[in-house]
Computed example of a mutant assay.
Amino acid sequence: MKAVKIVGQEKIEVVETPVPEVGPNDALVRLKATALCRSDLYRYHGTTCFDDDSANTNFTPGHEPCGIVEKVGDKVTNVKPGDRVGLFMFVGCGECEYCLRGDEMLCKQFGCIGFQRDGAHADYIVLPGANCLKIPDEMSFVAASLLTDVGGGLYTACRNLDVKGGKYVVIVGAGPMGCGGVMMAKAFGGKVIIVDVDSGRLDFARGIGADYAINPKEEDVEKRVLEITHGRGADIAIECTGNEVGANTALNVVRPLGRVGIIGENSSCTFDPSAQVIHKRLTILGCWVFNKNDWGEIVDFVLENNVPIEKLATHKYGIEDAEEAYRVFDSHGAQKVVFVWDE
Rank of each mutant, 00 (worst) to 15 (best):
N78P: 05
N248G: 06
G200H: 06
C269S: 11
W288C: 13
E324F: 06
R43K: 08
H332K: 13
D53S: 12
R255L: 04
N243A: 11
V195E: 05
C66K: 09
A174M: 03
V245M: 13
L202M: 05
V307W: 11
I171P: 07
S274M: 15
F329G: 04
S39A: 10
V245Q: 15
T148E: 07
I194Q: 09
P61I: 00
I263D: 06
L133T: 12
V7I: 15
R117I: 12
F271I: 06
E297F: 03
V4F: 14
N293C: 04
G178V: 11
V225N: 07
H230Q: 12
E222S: 04
D137Q: 15
C179S: 06
G261A: 02
G242A: 07
A247K: 14
E10D: 13
K167M: 12
A313R: 05
Y326R: 08
N78M: 07
L28H: 10
D118Y: 11
E21H: 03
I125T: 09
V85H: 07
K316A: 08
A122Y: 06
S268E: 15
N243S: 10
W341P: 07
E104W: 06
V192T: 04
T60P: 08
D300F: 05
A120P: 08
A35G: 15
Y168E: 02
G189K: 02
N215F: 07
G318T: 09
V260R: 02
Y168S: 01
W295D: 13
N56R: 15
M184G: 01
M139W: 08
V76K: 00
G181I: 07
G8R: 10
G209D: 05
A234M: 11
A325C: 11
V253Y: 06
C287N: 14
D123R: 10
D211I: 10
D53E: 11
H279G: 04
G129A: 05
P18R: 03
T17I: 10
Q276N: 09
D235V: 02
N160Q: 14
L226W: 01
R281F: 01
